[in-house]
Simulated scan of single mutants.
Amino acid sequence: MIRHNNPTGLSAMAAFTLFCLPACSARSIEIPKNICDTPVTQGLTAPLLKPAGELSEWHTTGWGEKGRSVCIVSVDRSEALRLRVSWHTDSIDPMKYSSLDNSATGLWEPRRIHHLAESATLGDNGSIATTRCKGKGKWNFTLALKVTRDRKIVHQRKAIDKFMRAYMPATMKTVGCTPP
Results as ranks from 00 to 15, higher is better:
residue 7 P to V: 12
residue 168 M to C: 07
residue 2 I to G: 10
residue 121 T to P: 00
residue 95 M to G: 02
residue 68 R to N: 10
residue 111 R to M: 07
residue 112 R to E: 11
residue 24 C to H: 04
residue 119 S to G: 08
residue 158 K to D: 15
residue 134 K to D: 15
residue 157 R to C: 02
residue 59 H to F: 07
residue 168 M to V: 15
residue 63 W to F: 12
residue 6 N to K: 14
residue 40 V to K: 06
residue 173 K to R: 06
residue 68 R to Y: 10
residue 122 L to I: 10
residue 12 A to V: 03
residue 144 A to N: 03
residue 37 D to T: 13
residue 51 P to C: 10
residue 125 N to R: 11
residue 48 L to M: 04
residue 107 L to W: 01
residue 137 G to M: 13
residue 47 P to R: 14
residue 176 G to Y: 04
residue 173 K to G: 04
residue 102 N to W: 03
residue 34 N to D: 12
residue 21 L to T: 15
residue 25 S to R: 15
residue 5 N to Q: 09
residue 38 T to M: 02
residue 103 S to N: 11
residue 64 G to R: 07
residue 150 D to Y: 11
residue 122 L to E: 05
residue 30 E to P: 00
residue 75 V to R: 14
residue 98 S to C: 05
residue 15 A to G: 05
residue 56 S to E: 08
residue 118 E to C: 06
residue 18 L to A: 15
residue 120 A to K: 08
residue 12 A to Q: 13
residue 118 E to R: 13
residue 71 C to H: 03
residue 106 G to I: 03
residue 60 T to W: 03
residue 110 P to N: 03
residue 145 L to M: 12
residue 74 S to A: 09
residue 117 A to F: 04
residue 113 I to W: 09
residue 21 L to Q: 10
residue 141 F to E: 05
residue 15 A to T: 01
residue 142 T to Y: 12
residue 8 T to G: 08
residue 5 N to M: 08
residue 149 R to K: 13
residue 97 Y to Q: 04
residue 133 C to T: 00
residue 61 T to Y: 00
residue 155 H to S: 14
residue 19 F to P: 01
residue 56 S to G: 13
residue 113 I to P: 00
residue 92 I to D: 04
residue 142 T to E: 14
residue 134 K to Y: 05
residue 117 A to G: 06
residue 144 A to C: 01
residue 12 A to F: 11
residue 38 T to L: 07
residue 23 A to I: 15
residue 160 I to Y: 02
residue 178 T to S: 10
residue 84 R to N: 01
residue 91 S to I: 05
residue 161 D to Y: 10
residue 58 W to G: 02
residue 149 R to F: 13
residue 162 K to Q: 15
residue 21 L to S: 07
residue 36 C to T: 06
residue 116 L to P: 07
residue 78 S to R: 14
residue 164 M to W: 08
residue 167 Y to N: 03
residue 91 S to D: 09
residue 106 G to P: 01
residue 150 D to L: 08
residue 164 M to I: 01
residue 133 C to I: 02
residue 173 K to L: 05
residue 177 C to Y: 09
residue 153 I to E: 09
residue 127 S to D: 06
residue 32 P to D: 06
residue 77 R to D: 11
residue 40 V to W: 03
residue 133 C to H: 00
residue 151 R to G: 11
residue 147 V to F: 05
residue 117 A to M: 06
residue 78 S to M: 11
residue 123 G to C: 08
residue 45 T to N: 04
residue 70 V to I: 12
residue 130 T to M: 04
residue 84 R to P: 01
residue 154 V to T: 15
residue 131 T to E: 13
residue 114 H to D: 07
residue 84 R to G: 01
residue 49 L to T: 09
residue 72 I to V: 13
residue 97 Y to D: 06
residue 109 E to H: 11
residue 3 R to Y: 14
residue 20 C to R: 11
residue 59 H to V: 02
residue 94 P to R: 02
residue 68 R to D: 10
residue 67 G to Q: 11
residue 163 F to Q: 08
residue 129 A to H: 10
residue 178 T to W: 03
residue 6 N to A: 12
residue 152 K to C: 05
residue 77 R to T: 07
residue 176 G to S: 01
residue 127 S to F: 03
residue 30 E to L: 11
residue 64 G to W: 06
residue 161 D to E: 15
residue 24 C to I: 15
residue 22 P to D: 01
residue 142 T to C: 12
residue 45 T to E: 00
residue 120 A to Y: 09
residue 71 C to V: 11
residue 174 T to I: 00
residue 51 P to Y: 04
residue 91 S to M: 07
residue 107 L to S: 00
residue 6 N to Y: 09
residue 83 L to F: 14
residue 142 T to N: 08
